[in-house]
Amino acid sequence: MKLKIRDVEFCYKNGPAVLEDIQMAVGANQMLTILGPNGVGKTTLLKCINGLLKTRKGTILVDGEELRKMNRVEVAKRIGYVPQRADVSQITVFDSVLLGRKPHITWDVSKNDIKITKDVISNLGLSELSLKYINEISGGELQKVQLARALVQEPKVLLLDEPTSSLDLCNQHHMMSTLVDVVKNSDLTAIMTMHDINLALRYSDKFIMLKGGTVFAAGGHEVITPENIEAVYDLPVNVVNFMDRPIIVPL
């Protein structure tokens, strides 16, 4: 398994546990979606994985190496993170993506850093925007820039917090298919949080459903049942099949 999480527990400043008994295992070339209602701890879990939040206990292993024992830079070489919102400044798309090489930079960027950046920008179809300032591009393009920045980190695991939340229908699918391409064609694992269960069903291989700060259900598409969704979201739903795809319909 590329990423293994065992017995992870997190709380804010000796308060009650926000997350407890979190178990997760994801292989290479797989996409896992964390599902659950607002405030259940999805983003908190992502931040625990990449060390932005310090877990109280548990182990987080990437390729068998314990992340909690590594310094920030070592973690950054293994985990890429695409936050839900990023601050935009007057910096070009190219420089913004190049920033992803930060964990690898000692004094200044090397020719190799520039080459990797150029390749990723080209692969994600951002070449035409590369000299535009990021405060002048659209939300969908900015989301791709953030993905590109995380990819030039050359991580083993990619964490994405609501990668499609600010995108229109077309850009949502474009973003997700780009992500699938990247994950399937490189030795990468993606873990994301998402509210749109239908979008997750279409693009994700595995799911974990959080309820009350712990894992309620985990597995493949089979865990997305009306019973589980109702238990987690407190909303009755039906699952219908449309063109051989399960679609969640709230009742």
Binding site: K47, A76, P83, I91, K102, P103
Partner: peptide, 23 residues
């Protein structure tokens, strides 16, 4: 000047900077 890349990372957002290994 030595920390110019760290300041660029901070400009990109605190979570982004920290996920890039910046303290």
């Amino acid at each position: 000047i030595y920390n110019r890349w760290n300041y660029n990372a901070i400009d990109a957002g605190i979570d982004t900077a920290r996920s890039l290994g910046v303290n």
